[in-house]
């Protein structure tokens, strides 16, 4: 084969491989919506989104408690995880001596990489009995799920916001210190505002991880289909609902369509968060 033919062929082959990611995204959207819309049709959109009955026997599926469950665990965990993670990231980048960073950084990497089922297991053997004994049965609860999610999202948010904070130009810091500001004033008034958009992206990444987490939540939340009235009530989320039923649901049944319907709601949540993050990261570049 002559060189020109090889050159042209390779160019098209490479374009083809690059196109695969686009195909996968389109495929995911198509298959999730194709099956999920059937759930909207079969149950009625209103009944699917705001119904409170999930019954195989009656073939009725309403996802309201799942949506509320997902929102509760996500908001609950981020309210704690975001400020704590930012505090740790600030400590790591601006205050901690070098040797401490060298120890903590690999720890964070390890914690980011630990499989979610291991976090779920830790929750099952450690948190659930603790909640059962001190706050009341059944232990498998919204609180257990929120706590596990806090543990899981902290390493992610710390890791990303640490990178952002490190990327703030040193001259900003030096200028502020030279003007007589203390180190803390510099952090609060100069470094944090400069890293703002990156930190918000990091938090949104954490939100994405929290709302999309399935296995760990399934293992500790108790999976009762009801809107929880307190933190120690068991609950169920969009994700844990899919985990619990995907193996038994028959292909083509109303049941599996309802699970794909949950998938649509989940995807919409994620797309909203992603676009916020995308817009913010564009702003960050301009600043």
């Amino acid at each position: 084969m002559n060189k020109k033919t090889i050159e042209q062929t390779m160019k098209w082959v490479l374009l083809g491989t690059a196109f695969v990611s686009l195909l996968i995204l389109v495929g995911i959207i198509y298959f999730i919506f194709d099956n999920g819309f059937l759930a909207f049709m079969e149950n009625g959109l209103w009944n699917f989104l705001f119904g409170q009955k999930w019954s195989l026997a009656d073939n009725t599926f309403g996802a309201l408690p799942l949506i509320i469950g997902s929102i509760y665990v996500t908001v609950g965990s981020i309210l704690v995880a975001a400020p704590v993670s930012i505090a740790i990231a600030v400590f790591m980048t601006n205050i901690a001596p070098h040797f401490l960073r060298e120890i903590v950084r690999p720890c964070i990497d390890l914690l980011v990489g630990i499989p979610s089922v291991v976090y779920g297991l830790i929750g099952m053997v450690f948190l659930v009995p603790l909640i059962r004994e001190h706050l009341g049965p059944p232990g498998y609860s919204l609180l257990a799920a929120i706590t596990v999610l806090i543990l899981m999202t902290i390493p992610t948010i710390v890791s990303v916001s640490e990178d952002t904070l490190r990327a703030v130009p040193t001259k900003y810091k030096e200028a502020s210190l030279a003007l007589g500001a203390t180190k803390w004033q510099t952090i609060w008034h100069v470094i944090l505002p400069a890293a703002k958009s990156g930190i918000i992206s990091a938090v949104i990444l954490g939100v994405g991880r929290a709302i999309g987490e399935a296995m760990a939540i399934y293992m500790v939340i108790g999976n009762s289909f009801s809107i929880p009235k307190s933190l120690i009530d068991p609950s169920r989320t969009l994700t844990s609902n899919i985990v619990g039923q995907i193996e038994e649901a028959a292909l083509g049944s109303t049941h599996i369509h309802a699970l794909f319907g949950c998938g649509i709601i989940l995807l919409l949540f994620v797309f909203v968060f992603n676009s916020i993050s995308f817009t913010l990261s564009k702003k960050g570049v301009q600043a």
């Binding site: 099956n35 989940l266 968060f273 995308f278």
Partner: peptide, 28 residues
Amino acid sequence: HFIRYALSSLAGIPSIIFGLFGVALFVT
């Protein structure tokens, strides 16, 4: 631009959604 957008979107999609996609396409 679309390819890059697809890659960054895929990275943010929850893993359980990939599970549903796998059931609907590959398992079928």
